[in-house]
Amino acid sequence: MAFSDDDQDTTFEQIYRCYPVSFIEKSNLEKGDKIIMPPSALDRLASLHIDYPMLFQLSNPSAGKVTHCGVLEFVSDEGIIYIPYWMMENMLLQEGDTVCVRNTSLAKGTYVKLQPHTKDFLDITNPKAILETSLRNYSCLTTGDTIMVAYNSKKYYIDIVETKPSPAVSIIETDCEVDFAAPLDYKEPEKPAPCALSKRKHSEVEDDEPPTTKVPQFSPFTGSGRRLDGKPSSSTQSADQTSSPKKKQKQSNDETEGSDSKSLNTTSRRHSGKLVFGSNAAKFDTQRPLPKASENITKQDSSQKQEAPKFQAFTGKKYSLNS
C-alpha cells in the first residue's frame, strides 16, 4: 500500500484490488453502496482529521469512470476491497482489477432525478415508497451511475440522471426531492393521421344518422271511386272538378280572351269595309245601322204573349147530368 504525500493529515488515498461482495458471502450488500475495506485502512483513517460519516471516491483511471460510496466494515484481506457488483459494472471493472480509493466530503442532496430502465417499475403499488426504503442503504448518489433496487425477488435498475447541488451528493439524513423521468423502454402511442381521423369521424357521423325518407303528406277525401258496374262514379267526376278549380278558371279565362279577340277582329273587319267569307258579318250591310237592343226585347215579349194566352179561372162550357 502507498499513501499520498500531499496533506497526509486530511487525505486518504490507496490502490486496492476489487472483488464482488458475493465472494465473502455478503450478497445483501448488493442492495446498497457500502464496501468492505481492510483493517489497515481503518487505522490510517483514524489518525486523520476527516469528516464523518466516511465517504469515498472510487475511480478507474483506465476507463475514466468515477463513483462514490460508503464503508460498512474493515474486515477484508490486506490490499483487497469488496464492492457491490453493480458498482463494478458502472466502473467497468473485472474481478481482480485495481481501483483507486480516496476519502471525500460531499454536500447533502436536495434534488435527484431518476430514470428506470423498464416501465414495469412504475407498475409497483407504491414505487416512491419502495425507492425511499431502498435508498436508506445508500450513502451517496453520483450523476451517471446506475443503481439497483430489489423488490419481490426482482431487480430494477435505475439511472441517476441529475443530482443537486453537485454532480455527487450525500443522502444521509437529508430531505431530498425525487423526480422521475420516463422509463427507457417507454414509447408514446402513435397518433393517427389527421386525414384518416377526419374520414373516420365523418363515417361515424353518417352511420349514426338514420336514413331520411320522404313521408307523403296525408290528404283526406282524395282518390278515385268505382261503381259496382265498373263505371266511374259521379262523385269522382265532381271531386276532379273541385280538385282542379284553377285549371277551370284558366280555361274560362282563355275562352274569354279568345272571344274578346274574335270580337275585336270582326269589329275591325266591319269598319274596314271588307267582306269576310265564312262569317256572319257578310249577311249584313256594313253601312246599315244595327237595331237597338230595347226594340228587340219588346218585340220578343209581345210575340211570347200572343203565343201563350193567360189562364182564366171558371171559364168554359157548362154541362148537366141529363143532357
Score class of each variant (00 low, 15 high):
residue 120 D to N: 13
residue 17 R to F: 11
residue 95 E to D: 06
residue 186 Y to S: 12
residue 253 N to T: 07
residue 284 F to W: 06
residue 301 D to V: 14
residue 151 Y to L: 09
residue 179 D to H: 12
residue 291 P to S: 05
residue 154 K to P: 00
residue 162 E to I: 01
residue 206 E to Y: 00
residue 291 P to Q: 02
residue 95 E to T: 01
residue 278 G to W: 00
residue 77 D to G: 15
residue 125 T to M: 10
residue 113 K to S: 14
residue 220 P to F: 02
residue 322 N to P: 04
residue 207 D to Y: 07
residue 58 L to S: 08
residue 281 A to C: 12
residue 111 Y to H: 13
residue 300 Q to M: 12
residue 196 A to E: 12
residue 37 M to E: 09
residue 17 R to G: 14
residue 316 G to T: 01
residue 292 K to A: 10
residue 9 D to F: 05
residue 131 L to E: 07
residue 136 R to E: 13
residue 81 I to K: 03
residue 53 P to Y: 05
residue 53 P to T: 04
residue 144 G to N: 05
residue 84 P to G: 03
residue 175 D to N: 14
residue 92 L to P: 00
residue 23 F to G: 05
residue 198 S to R: 15
residue 32 G to H: 04
residue 246 K to I: 09
residue 33 D to M: 01
residue 100 C to A: 06
residue 80 I to T: 15
residue 24 I to L: 14
residue 101 V to M: 13
residue 197 L to P: 00
residue 9 D to S: 07
residue 36 I to T: 13
residue 74 F to H: 14
residue 240 D to N: 14
residue 183 P to K: 00
residue 176 C to T: 14
residue 268 S to N: 09
residue 120 D to G: 00
residue 218 F to M: 08
residue 110 T to L: 08
residue 216 P to F: 02
residue 217 Q to V: 08
residue 94 Q to A: 01
residue 252 S to K: 06
residue 90 N to R: 03
residue 142 T to Q: 10
residue 103 N to I: 10
residue 3 F to R: 06
residue 37 M to V: 07
residue 159 D to L: 08
residue 134 S to N: 14
residue 245 P to L: 05
residue 267 T to N: 08
residue 19 Y to I: 00
residue 214 K to H: 07
residue 272 S to K: 03
residue 163 T to A: 14
residue 74 F to C: 04
residue 163 T to D: 10
residue 113 K to Q: 15
residue 67 T to M: 15
residue 28 N to T: 02
residue 303 S to Q: 11
residue 200 R to F: 09
residue 47 S to L: 06
residue 84 P to Q: 02
residue 241 Q to V: 11
residue 110 T to I: 06
residue 140 C to M: 09
residue 28 N to S: 11
residue 164 K to Y: 04
residue 89 E to K: 05
residue 129 A to C: 02
residue 94 Q to N: 01
residue 144 G to W: 10
residue 179 D to Q: 11
residue 261 S to T: 08
residue 266 T to H: 13
residue 147 I to L: 15
residue 196 A to G: 10
residue 47 S to T: 08
residue 35 I to V: 15
residue 295 E to K: 03
residue 135 L to A: 09
residue 231 K to M: 10
residue 267 T to H: 07
residue 126 N to W: 08
residue 34 K to V: 02
residue 229 D to R: 02
residue 122 L to Y: 09
residue 267 T to R: 13
